[in-house]
Every structure is written in structure tokens, then in C-alpha cells.
Amino acid sequence: MKSRKIVITGGPGTGKSSIVHRLEEKGERCLHEISRQVTLEAQKEGIAQLFLERPLLFSEKLLEGRLKQYIEADKITGDHIFIDRGLHDVLAYMDYFKTPYPDLFDKICKDHPYDKIFILPPWKEIYKSDNERYESFEQALKISDYLYSTYRNYGYDPIEVPKLSVEERTRFILNNI
């Protein structure tokens, strides 16, 4: 039996990684966000912010990596697997930045459904920017709107995770799968 694919998404700095790490500590299977890896690889090649300099290439690399994760999740047995960001996040970001993308992006999202979507709302008190997170909090708010909209446009009803401690948010997710 294939594991149910459960996405944890949200704008930048909403606590996704902290929750995914806590889920792992509890013995849950998780696949991690890959955008930092794509960004760091580009920086090694002398491109400071691949998404800003070549947004379509960055998005193609992200979509390819997330598609690999999706296929990897298909091979995992068990009840469920948590995925830090889904394929649809790529389209939400592209739409936010008003960057056109090929129809193939849409087809990939339609052909690779998830079982449940949890979305973390923007939360100013925990937001921090760093070397790979260049967005301001105001931009994070707008990106969050695009994420909600994109997932809804594909027929999902994202479950909003309340602004609580990491432990309580993790428990909320586990109680709602």
C-alpha cells in the first residue's frame, strides 16, 4: 500500500522546518524542503540568488526535485509520509513573481495529487530572514495568499495550522491526518 502524501506548506518563515523536524523526532517519515539545496548549489556556481536571476531555471530544478520526492514517496510503505512543500508551491511562487511557466508545470501538478495539505499561516513573531530566505515579512504574507489560492485552484482544501508552539502544531497535524 502506498503511503498517503501529506504536504506541509506555508509562506517563508512560518515554522515548516521546525514542525517537520519535530515529526521526525516522533518517528514520522518526512521528506525535506529542497529549495535551500538548489539555492546553495547555484551559489557554489557563483549565482547569488538563482530564483531572482533565473526564476524559470530555479523553478524547473525545484519542480524536478519535488517530482523525484513524489515518486520516492510512492515507494514508501506505511500509512503516510509528510512532505515539506509540494509541487504546487512552485506554481504559487511563479504566479507571485508573475513569471510565466510552461503548461507542463500545470500538468505535473494535476497528474500528481496529494492526500492532504496543511498550511502554516504567516506569523510575524517567528519570522526570520537569512541567507536563503530573502523575502520580507510583507512579501511572505502575499506568498501565503498565493499558496492558499494555488492549492484551492487544484481542488484542495488546505487545513490551516494554528499559531501555537511547535509541539502543539505538530500534535494538531497528527490529530488531523
Rank of each mutant, 00 (worst) to 15 (best):
E25T: 03
R171Q: 15
L23S: 04
I71K: 14
E25P: 00
A42T: 04
E125P: 01
G46M: 14
N176S: 11
I177P: 00
T9H: 07
Q139R: 08
L56F: 09
S17D: 05
R22F: 10
P55T: 06
M1T: 10
P162F: 11
E160M: 09
P55Q: 01
R169W: 01
I173D: 00
R152H: 05
H32W: 14
D95A: 13
I81H: 11
G46C: 13
V7L: 14
I8D: 01
I83E: 07
H88D: 02
E138F: 07
R152I: 11
E168R: 05
S129N: 15
S165T: 15
V166S: 02
Q43E: 15
D95H: 06
Q43G: 03
R133L: 02
S18Q: 08
D74I: 00
P55V: 05
K116A: 04
W123E: 10
P158L: 00
L141A: 00
L52Y: 10
P12D: 01
R85C: 08
R66M: 15
P102V: 04
D79H: 05
V166F: 03
L56P: 11
D157V: 06
M1I: 05
P121Y: 06
L23T: 11
V7R: 12
D79T: 04
I173W: 00
Y70F: 15
D89I: 09
M94I: 09
I159W: 01
L174V: 03
R171N: 15
M94D: 08
Y151T: 04
P122Q: 09
K124L: 12
N153K: 12
D95V: 03
L56I: 14
G10N: 11
L147W: 00
L40R: 03
L141V: 11
K16V: 11
F105I: 07
V20L: 08
E64D: 11
A48R: 09
Y154F: 15
Y156E: 07
G86F: 14
L141F: 02
A73P: 14
R54L: 10
G155C: 03
G65S: 06
T99G: 01
Y70S: 08
K26H: 08
Y96L: 13
D103E: 14
K75S: 15
G46S: 13
P113K: 12
K75V: 03
I76V: 13
E53R: 12
I177D: 01
I71A: 06
S35Q: 05
I108C: 07
L56A: 10
I117G: 02
V7S: 05
F58A: 15
N153C: 07
F137P: 01
R171K: 15
E132T: 14
I34T: 13
E138Q: 14
F82E: 00
R169S: 03
D145G: 07
I173F: 01
Y148V: 11
E138K: 13
D106H: 10
R29W: 04
E28G: 08
Y93V: 13
E33P: 07
R152Y: 01
H80W: 15
P12Y: 02
R171C: 06
G11T: 12
F172T: 02
Y134W: 06
D130S: 02
R4G: 02
D95N: 12
I177E: 05
L57Y: 09
K124Y: 10
E72N: 13
V7W: 11
